[in-house]
């Protein structure tokens, strides 16, 4: 492993993008930072600025009003970057997807991978903090292999 890959693997900075979720995943991301899990052990720190981040954690169904903001936030991240979709809503729309299955609901602009490329999916409603850390590590491994 070269210095480049090592550095990327060792210091993934994450950015949390709340995209019309119910907050459940958001507080689990906050909980993943708490002393019980403490991802700073492995170099993961939360940064509130997409320009400083390597990995974006996206939660929620991404309402239509949110789509341009999410796109722009993603564009603001310098390469290499990775995206982790957290929770059922971000992956498919989850409980907010209408029954008839003829596509997303009238308000839903996502799932996330329809808007921006997603690297890791973390199912759960919400996923446990461990699962989120697991997802971040997987994303960091993907990130380290990028050019």
């Amino acid at each position: 492993m070269g210095l480049k890959q090592k550095a990327r693997l060792y210091s993934p900075w994450v950015f949390h993008a709340h995209c019309s979720g119910c907050n459940g995943c958001g507080i689990e991301i906050a909980a993943a930072l708490n002393p019980r899990y403490d991802p700073e052990r492995i170099g993961v720190t939360l940064h509130n600025n997409p320009r400083h981040a390597d990995i974006m954690l996206v939660e929620g169904i991404v309402a239509k009003q949110h789509v341009p903001f999410l796109k722009r936030t993603y564009e603001q991240m310098p390469t290499p970057k990775a995206v982790v979709a957290i929770g059922s809503c971000a992956i498919t729309g989850g409980v907010f997807k209408p029954d008839d299955d003829k596509g997303p609901s009238y308000t839903q602009g996502g799932p996330v991978d329809r808007i921006i490329p997603v690297d890791v999916y973390v199912p759960g409603c919400p996923p446990k903090p461990e699962a989120i850390i697991d997802g971040i590590i997987k994303a960091a491994i993907i990130l380290s292999k990028r050019d």
């Binding site: 550095a7 290499p80 590590i137």
Partner: peptide, 21 residues
Amino acid sequence: VVGSTRILQPFWDIMKLMYKQ
């Protein structure tokens, strides 16, 4: 996966930034 030590964590942070766009 995560290496053997993180004594030099700020160093890795800086190195990572150096390899970023």
